[in-house]
Write a protein that binds this DNA or RNA. Structure first.
Lengths: 354, 354
DNA sequence: TTGAAAGCGTTACCAC
DNA sequence: GTGGTAACGCTTTCAA
């Protein structure tokens, strides 16, 4: 039923081998022959059989991108950027050359350790060409070990491992490249900004407890408080998930328990939006009555809330870089850390909270 | 290097065929043998070779999900829902049984016709088990024909085609199921609401010109105006892309050109956020000075802007349904249309604009 | 520059 | 219930 490479070969009066060579363009073929083959291909509307080709070549053109929450633009931006840069030069809107094109597989773990592992297995089963892990990792020794083991096996089978917005795996030489965010410095800078404006009672709505981003950002916040000699009241720190509902609930609790708060730092913009919603519900004006500061880079959200102080992470750039690295660009085994000044880049232009 | 099915067979002292049977569970195997095989599998840490299996079985377990913008939660919500429901019962957080598990491939077309086609080809190449097309389609005869042809070929090769939030393809019996949104009725209801509040000069920020969602929503808006006998000033309708920047620019133009506007309808929530941002920048209070009404279902965004009127689309439910249908649940060839009352469901509880 | 043919790792049909 | 063994469609030496 479906057209095979052999059909094309017959139609073009050449051998299957030649057709394969033309299609993969990795071998010299006479111009005339090539023409003939190409014509046959389009005449028969032939499409390579990915699985067969992957089996024979022992590698596929699938690239897995693991995200914690596909509905969160934080990941959407990174994933989109990575995907756009998986296939070298090309401007994003250009039609992709259908052949030998890498296909991004965005996998939504929902923050679940189990699903993270399962997806890695699924990608291993597909013999993925690369895997990009994005966002904060779960801080659990057992799970970390399991992930590391899985990644090691993947790498061993030829899959390129790239970390984006994820802390480096200590001494894991199977990681092709790491693009880690300096969350600690970013948070330090963010809280430092609020302190410099005179705020002293600052609430903090953190992310889920066992996440690296949660911990690092919170540590940065505390470092800033310490550096300014401000009190670090544990009652002002609340944990929750990285979503609006959580941010809103936390703000409600904070504002009830400590009405003297003048500012609230949110561990990410999604949470910040929830905090803003709660503030408005209570008739508080932002930033006159309450300053709210978010962390991520969600221009779509933050612009809508002029009161939001944002430390811009170069999300898109990081994702783009990760995509290119996954595609094989850059030196293997090289660990790259997004420098602090890049992480907070642009923040001066964005800071608007009072 | 990598462990193969043959290795497992040898280790378990059975034939490759038996191992395959155990793994696929589609054939009777003695309990004892099964045990032995399973033990061998875990002892050798064996992982099926997806491509090989897909080649032999002539179908893969990949399911493609095409979205227009992966950074837009509108699509993220649908894609996430679909993905979560690709593998029947299971609660979302449960570990997926690694074997024979469907893998969602989220493809970001960026709204580009060329990329849409290319991704379809890529999925065809992977012999995808199903393809879910989400969101508005591009209204271009040539492109539509090309897509239809592509889909027909995919279907012919056994790929299930599911449309989610996309208008039905007239008379295309190769479509497994269609979940279309009644955008026209939704928009009618939204603008009708503003009219019932007494607004007469209502701006409208539409989406990209050649998109079905754009047209349908705008038509609904106009129908509502006509029904209420309100003037339909073409100068009050501006087109742009479905993003914030566009919404903001359009609002700026509208507010400058027609200062007597009392309300603005945005074709989706992302645009609405841009409109809100511009309004604030001009010192306008919402909803006292200007009512802003959005269309999509982006709880994360709308809650933050209490002034926003939102017609809730059952996005998550639609996505979930699409996922299940793509996985084979439900009757084939069945066309399902989300009924209008479902589309506007919940809007009464959400409408808050003044 | 091109062709022949041996795999690649599963699946599924046919015997036993 | 289990084993043997052709496919499946492509890639890639090895020769010519």
């Amino acid at each position: 039923m479906t057209v095979t490479l052999a059909d094309v070969a017959a139609h073009a009066r050449v051998s299957p081998a030649t057709v394969s060579r033309v299609l993969n363009g990795n071998y010299p073929v006479a111009a005339a022959t090539r023409e003939r083959v190409l014509r046959a291909v389009s005449e028969l509307d032939y499409v390579v059989n990915g699985p067969a080709s992957a089996l024979a070549a022992a590698t596929s053109d699938l690239v897995g991108i693991l995200v914690n929450d596909i509905a969160d633009p934080f990941f959407g931006i990174m994933a989109g950027a990575a995907q756009a840069h998986l296939n070298t030069p090309s401007d994003a809107s250009a039609p992709i050359r259908t052949n030998a094109e890498r296909l991004a597989v965005v996998c939504n773990t929902g923050g679940s350790p189990a699903r993270e592992l399962t997806y890695l297995t699924l990608l291993q089963r597909q013999r993925a060409a690369a895997v990009i892990l994005t966002g904060g990792a779960i801080e659990d020794a057992e799970h970390s070990a399991a992930v590391a083991a899985k990644l090691a096996r993947l790498a061993e089978a030829g899959t390129r491992i790239v970390l984006c917005g994820r802390p480096a795996l200590g001494g894991a030489e199977f990681v092709h490249a790491t693009l880690s965010f300096d969350n600690r410095a970013g948070a330090r800078r963010l809280t430092g900004h609020l302190l410099s404006l005179g705020h002293r009672r600052i609430g903090y709505v953190a992310g889920p407890a066992e996440r690296t981003t949660t911990r690092h950002r919170l540590e940065g916040h505390r470092e800033a408080l310490a550096a300014a000699g401000a009190a670090d009241d544990p009652a002002l720190v609340l944990h929750g998930s990285y979503d609006r509902a959580s941010g809103r609930a936390a703000a409600a609790r904070l504002l009830s328990a400590a009405p003297d708060l003048t500012a609230i730092v949110a561990a990410n913009d999604t949470i910040a939006l929830g905090v803003c919603a709660e503030a408005r519900e209570r008739g508080l004006r932002i930033p006159e009555d309450l300053s709210v500061a978010g962390f991520d880079d969600l221009p779509s959200a933050t612009d809508a809330v002029p009161a939001l102080t944002t430390v811009r992470l170069p999300l898109y750039e990081a994702g783009a870089r990760a995509g290119a690295l996954a595609a094989g660009a850059g030196a293997a085994g090289h660990v790259e850390v997004v420098p602090a000044e890049l992480v907070v880049r642009g923040s001066t232009g964005v800071v608007r909270a009072g």
